[in-house]
Structures are given as C-alpha cells and as structure tokens.
Amino acid sequence: MQVTPELDARFRTAALGEGLVDVRYDLVDSPVGPLFVAATDRGLCRISYSPEHGEELVVRDFGVRLLRSPLDDVRRELDEYFEGRRRDFDLALDLRVASFHADVLRELAAVPYGLTTTYGALARQVGRPSAARAVGTVMNRNPIPIVLPCHRVVGANGALTGYAGGLDIKRHLLRLEGAALV
C-alpha cells in the first residue's frame, strides 16, 4: 500500500506546523554537484557536498528529528549565485558552534565576493595572530560552505591548499566570482 504524494505532503506540512522537526533538509542540484542543505527554525545550518555525511552531522548537532522538506529561499539564492546574479547571501544562519569558530566564521562571512584572503589574515582579524592553523581547521569544518565563503581563503603564497568539497570545486567557485588565481 503506497502512500500517495498528497498524503505524504499533508503529513510533512502537519509535522512542520506543529514544530516537531529539529532540522529540515533538501537536496539542491548545482554546477558543482548535488548539495545537501539543512535548516533549523533559526536558519540555514549546514551545506554539505555529501548527503550521507551532511545527514550524520546535522543529527549530531541538532537532533534526530530530521525531515525532508523544500527550502525554497536557500535553493533560490544558490541558483542565483551559480548563475552569477548574486554576490551576497541574505539567508538567516544558525551558527550554534564554539565561540572561536563563530568569531572566525563571522570574519569569513565578510570576505567580499571575488576576493581572497589568507588563513593568517583571518587569524589576525580575530585577535589570534598565531592561530592560522586553527583557522584552517575551522575552514575545514565550515558547516555552510558557499554561503560562508571558505573557498575565498587561500595559503599565504596564494596556493589553494585545500577544500572540503575538493580543489576542483574551490577553483570553480573562484572562477565564477572572477577572482585572480595563482
């Protein structure tokens, strides 16, 4: 006995309406592959290049009551970004992470479209000039890549160094934004 799409949609709407869901998520197609996107009541909390991994992380951070549901604003802003029509995101974010992480991610959010910065520069901006390596760790664990632009952070010599989604994606995003690549 198959549940019809109408019945399924009715259940999902009722579940969200009653506030029973910890995290809503969806899969969004993009030029860099399918993106797992997830949001809490407070806002976007996770983007992952790997759906399995994303699911696991949001369950750990926000709870097991995970339900798939369209995230229209997120999808629209990402589409606009990938079409080159959007430089800044207007999405509410849920950044319930450790304070050093939050400080670094806030500085990261301010790195402008099409420009790059370095791990050391971000470390200096949060008042921890010797913490370039720790900044690298924060980038590596960035919960919301693309929207929090860790692809704009490069090594002191301009090398791309690393990226959670792979260096090809980092290069793709920087080219899209017209950034100068070494």
């Binding site: 019945l7 009722a14 579940a15 009653e18 029973l20 869901v21 709870g63 097991v64 009551r65």
Partner: peptide
C-alpha cells in the same frame, strides 16, 4: 485509515527524540 496514518507518524515524531 489516512487520518489515523497521519496521527500515527505525528505521535512517532513527538516521541522520537526520547527514544
């Protein structure tokens, strides 16, 4: 059945984080 089905999964969801 359909109303009962929805109620079943809403009850499950209400209790799910206490499993």
């Amino acid at each position: 059945a359909e109303d009962a089905w929805q109620e079943t999964f809403l009850r499950a969801l209400r209790a799910y984080d206490r499993l």
